[in-house]
Design a protein around this nucleic acid. Structure first.
Lengths: 134, 134
DNA sequence: ACTATTCATAGTAAATTGGTAGGAATTACT
DNA sequence: AGTAATTCCTACCAATTTACTATGAATAGT
């Protein structure tokens, strides 16, 4: 039940973008790599997932880079982690087919645990993380 | 952030033992294997972890088997999962050394998430799961 | 003795993780 | 137009982890 590096790195990058949000300029992957300690090429892949989820936008070419699509106040940690970490699914059987087909004693448990985790993570914004106000 | 098969299987076995608790007899690994659909040899290893955590006790030899050490009312799902799933640690850096040494923006987040998960899982007893009362 | 069981430990194939690598597409600047 | 800086796309790969299988010793009942 470990959060993957990918998820952690994605969150770190998002926090950096949050810190940069009011400057209204794009941060490139080199800057993000230096701030987070993650290699550029790996970060590119992770940020691509956030872009797909419409959390960040990008411009290409020279002076290109990334920024958040919305104020970090309005972006929850849960949204970021779900984008990067395969929807935060804690068991496969919840949203796909389960071998036990409804007879599983723990199905409700997994569902409630999932709701609990996401419920908490959705109460924390990127701003809070960026300001260490948590 | 997936719950491992080991954790799920351990919980399923614990639920079977819970159902059997009032009979005051030992269930052997063959019976548990049939009830859960997990191979005997793998289950043995998983149950060993629960034994180590003093959740189940065993007798060896013919007519041997396993039973819970306490009423399933008093055993939480959290306790079972922590025994089987490496303490349910969601990040390595929380209880060991962190490369960023306290400067990590997300450290508090991981701590609170961990507390949240365990807080919920500790409110659910094996009895509740066994009776699908959840 | 014999049989049924737990206990301990070693091995292993497949999947996943955590990257690296190469280069095409795009944009800004001179 | 040309060049440099960037994102985007996709393939590859090594190390680790997972999910078992296998073997056999120790123990207990009949």
């Amino acid at each position: 039940m470990k959060m993957s590096s990918k998820a952690r790195y994605g969150l770190y990058a998002a926090v950096e973008l949050a810190k940069n949000y009011d400057k209204e300029e794009y941060l490139n992957v080199t800057a993000l790599s230096q701030a987070t300690g993650v290699t550029e090429k790996y970060l590119e892949q992770i940020i691509a997932l956030m872009k797909k989820a419409n959390i960040v936008s990008a411009t290409r070419g020279a002076t290109g880079g990334y920024k958040l699509t919305d104020s970090p106040n309005n972006i929850s940690v849960g949204r970021v982690l779900r984008a990067v970490e395969d929807n935060l699914e804690i068991v496969d059987c919840l949203h796909s087919e389960c071998a036990q087909r409804g007879k599983c004693a723990a199905r409700n448990l997994w569902g409630k645990l999932y709701d609990n985790i996401n419920g908490y993570l959705d109460t924390v914004s990127l701003t809070q993380l960026a300001e260490d106000n948590i």
